[in-house]
Structures are given as C-alpha cells and as structure tokens.
Computed example of a mutant assay.
Amino acid sequence: MFKKDMIQQGSVLFVSDNTGVKKVNCIKVLGSSKKRYARIGDILKISIICTNSKKHKKGDIYNSVLVNTKYNLVRPDGTRIRFFKNSVVLLDEKYDLIGTRILDPLPRELTLIKNGKYTFINKIASLSPEII
C-alpha cells in the first residue's frame, strides 16, 4: 500500500544545510536492495536539481542523510510530529558533512540512532539550532 509523503526513489527533497544546494532528487535508498522507503536517519544517494553554489553543479551525485519528513513521526507516548518539508543534509564519499551549519530544527529520534560506523549523526545534532 502506498503511503503519502514517504521518501522513495524519485522523491524531491530540500537541503537543510549551508552548502548552497536547494533541491535534490532521491536516486536510491541505501541499506538493502529491497528497501523501498526511507525513514529519518537513513542514508540516501541523491542528485542535485537546483543550486546557487559554484562548487556544486546540477547533476552531481552525493550521499545524504534524511533529517525531516512530512510523514508523521509517532513517539512512544503517542504524540505525533510532522515537518513542513522533506529535507536532507549532504555528505561526501567518506560520510563527512559538506556544510558547516544546519538550518532546520531536528527531531530527537535522529540523535537516538546508534550507528557505530557513522559518526556524522552526532555532528549533525550538535550543529542543529534546535532539537524537537
């Protein structure tokens, strides 16, 4: 069953860091060959659609981590959180942050992800202006 506003291949996303890239297109949800939908904290392979930067060109391919979704995020106490836009933070090939600032507030669930391999989650949380 298709759920609205789920992030999958072909979804248009906004960038919430200061790299100068505005919109990106999801190429693939990384993690498994059968994985169709992405959740907060998942890594995506993306292609740039719209940019104001001279360093990043249209059509460039990067990795990114999903930080906000329009789809409801349900907490264990029953509260629901949703954001106004689907947004990502750009990463390079070594999974290091490209930008130096995060412009949007982040959900608390992003900081609770325990990936020993990926240390960028803690860095994203520390650069965020607010944790909701």
Rank of each mutant, 00 (worst) to 15 (best):
residue 47 S to P: 01
residue 40 I to D: 08
residue 92 D to F: 00
residue 76 P to S: 06
residue 100 T to R: 03
residue 51 T to K: 01
residue 58 K to W: 03
residue 83 F to C: 11
residue 59 G to P: 05
residue 24 V to E: 04
residue 116 G to H: 06
residue 47 S to R: 10
residue 75 R to L: 15
residue 19 T to N: 02
residue 72 N to P: 15
residue 76 P to Q: 03
residue 73 L to E: 11
residue 82 R to G: 12
residue 23 K to Q: 14
residue 41 G to S: 06
residue 41 G to E: 09
residue 78 G to A: 01
residue 67 V to A: 06
residue 105 P to E: 14
residue 90 L to F: 01
residue 19 T to V: 03
residue 21 V to L: 06
residue 32 S to W: 00
residue 66 L to T: 07
residue 48 I to D: 01
residue 74 V to T: 10
residue 41 G to P: 10
residue 61 I to R: 09
residue 19 T to K: 00
residue 62 Y to L: 13
residue 74 V to W: 01
residue 24 V to A: 15
residue 27 I to H: 09
residue 75 R to F: 15
residue 58 K to R: 10
residue 44 L to R: 03
residue 94 K to L: 07
residue 86 N to S: 12
residue 86 N to Y: 02
residue 50 C to G: 00
residue 79 T to I: 06
residue 105 P to G: 11
residue 48 I to H: 02
residue 69 T to V: 15
residue 17 D to M: 01
residue 93 E to F: 01
residue 75 R to I: 07
residue 13 L to M: 14
residue 20 G to I: 03
residue 62 Y to W: 09
residue 78 G to Y: 00
residue 110 L to S: 06
residue 77 D to A: 02
residue 28 K to L: 12
residue 114 K to V: 14
residue 96 D to H: 08
residue 72 N to L: 13
residue 36 R to L: 15
residue 36 R to G: 06
residue 97 L to F: 01
residue 19 T to F: 08
residue 103 L to Y: 11
residue 42 D to E: 10
residue 65 V to D: 09
residue 52 N to D: 14
residue 92 D to M: 02
residue 23 K to I: 04
residue 65 V to F: 06
residue 48 I to Y: 03
residue 49 I to L: 14
residue 98 I to A: 00
residue 108 R to C: 09
residue 72 N to A: 14
residue 104 D to I: 02
residue 76 P to N: 07
residue 69 T to C: 13
residue 98 I to P: 00
residue 25 N to V: 11
residue 36 R to Y: 11
residue 14 F to K: 09
residue 19 T to R: 00
residue 35 K to W: 07
residue 18 N to D: 15
residue 18 N to F: 00
